[in-house]
């Protein structure tokens, strides 16, 4: 993949992540301040298809965005070979994607 394409993917994923992060922070504040129990949370997250869609998108965008940024940092500041960094970041993206989607499934999997 060309540098220009990686650059574009990182910027575009950042544009999507911006509002998602704000909503995510809002959800955290709401959930902790209103004293919801774990059961109450799970009941809510499994009750609407909105939650898996929202956090599924979040995970995909984060899995695109974070490895590209980390790749830039590693390439610029460490003597690691470029190919090693590329493979490591591809693996990192996959780990973020799999672990993230698994977590999303775990809290929303009961959607009927």
């Amino acid at each position: 993949m060309t540098e220009a394409r990686l650059f574009a993917l990182q910027r575009l994923s950042a544009m999507v992540l911006g509002p998602l992060v704000l909503v995510h922070l809002g959800v955290i504040l709401y959930a902790t301040r209103t004293g919801l129990t774990a059961d109450a949370l799970l009941e809510r997250t499994t009750s609407s298809v909105l939650w898996p869609v929202f956090y599924g998108l979040f995970v995909v965008m984060a899995a695109i965005h974070a490895p590209i940024g980390l790749r830039n940092v590693l390439r610029e500041w460490t003597p690691l070979p470029d190919r090693l960094v590329d493979w490591a970041m591809a693996a990192f993206a996959l780990i973020l994607l799999v672990m993230g989607l698994r977590a999303v499934w775990a809290v929303t999997g009961g959607v009927s």
């Binding site: 060309t2 540098e3 220009a4 990686l6 650059f7 830039n72 610029e76 470029d82």
Partner: peptide
């Protein structure tokens, strides 16, 4: 020119 200017070590740096 666009490909060269956006390659590694180009405007992204």
């Amino acid at each position: 020119t666009l490909d060269a200017a956006t390659a590694a070590g180009g405007c992204g740096s």
